[in-house]
Amino acid sequence: MTFKTLLSVVDVKQNDDDLNTAIALCAEINAQLSVVVIAIATLPPLGDYPIGTADVWLKDRHDDLEALSKRVDAVETMVKNADISATVVDEYPEPARISRVIGRHARYTDATIIGSSLLRHDLMITTVVDGALFESGRPILIVPHGSKPTLRPKCVLLAWDSGVECTRAAREALDIMISAEEVHVTLVDPDTSSIVSGPEPGADIAAYLAHHGVKTTVDRLPSGGKAIADVLKQHAIDVSADLIVMGGYGHSRMRERIFGGVTRSMLDEPRLPVLMAR
């Protein structure tokens, strides 16, 4: 699909790196930018607390909202100076509601940008990713520190395992891949059973993409005992990919959080921009 709107989630205490990334991407493709400036609400005291505790909570809440208002003003100034079409809203959710809040905003954009500052935010990253992927049905664009993000890449690596998640990712990135000079459909230790991948793993998706004018190469790689995520990352570097496209959370979220997985590894240690869908 063609990306016409992008979502950027900005924490009230966060620096401007992620916002600058979002602005640059929107300028590149002439897209609308939707910015959600978020502060995590200070929870009210519960149970028996000394007299005055409620006053402290009210003071903390007042300070939170004041900081949020100032951050919104600063963000509005930045997007105005950038001369792009943008909307800026603020949110003050309790921790348990962050995912739902992000999901609600993400539904009305084409992708949510997960920048380097957000990737380092231990409290926010999991809830924002959960909200953007599971509460919206939209993809996320992971942009690690030091990378050069673009939505007009010359070379794309499509991580493929014939699953529903990577099928969705391929569909979301179709216009991007059509415009690319080359797309590497990459399978690691592919399942050769006909019920999963057909007699020639990767051939079906390559044919589908070719019908849309995508210039594809199918790469079938052995893991050699290495983690699949590591093989994908290294191959992306070897073929000079500008973007990795992949499905997210092929296993349950709980399983991946406990035991790890390709999705978890891509979030924890990305090397290149990753467009992820579920």
Rank of each mutant, 00 (worst) to 15 (best):
30 N>D: 14
31 A>S: 14
51 I>T: 11
46 L>N: 07
60 D>C: 05
54 A>H: 13
35 V>R: 09
59 K>V: 06
31 A>L: 05
39 A>I: 01
26 C>D: 02
46 L>M: 06
51 I>W: 07
36 V>D: 00
52 G>D: 05
51 I>H: 10
39 A>S: 14
43 L>D: 03
37 V>N: 12
56 V>R: 14
34 S>G: 06
59 K>H: 11
57 W>E: 09
49 Y>G: 03
49 Y>R: 15
29 I>V: 07
43 L>K: 12
40 I>R: 15
60 D>P: 00
43 L>E: 14
48 D>E: 11
32 Q>C: 01
32 Q>Y: 09
54 A>M: 10
30 N>G: 07
53 T>P: 03
48 D>G: 00
34 S>C: 08
53 T>W: 10
41 A>Y: 06
30 N>L: 02
57 W>S: 12
32 Q>S: 01
55 D>T: 08
60 D>F: 07
27 A>P: 00
33 L>S: 05
37 V>T: 13
45 P>S: 02
54 A>I: 06
27 A>S: 15
33 L>D: 01
32 Q>L: 06
45 P>I: 04
37 V>L: 08
54 A>P: 02
54 A>G: 13
59 K>T: 07
40 I>G: 11
33 L>A: 00
54 A>F: 10
25 L>F: 02
49 Y>D: 00
32 Q>W: 02
51 I>Y: 09
36 V>E: 03
46 L>E: 13
26 C>F: 04
33 L>I: 02
53 T>A: 12
53 T>I: 06
60 D>W: 13
58 L>P: 03
27 A>V: 00
32 Q>H: 13
55 D>K: 09
36 V>Q: 12
36 V>M: 10
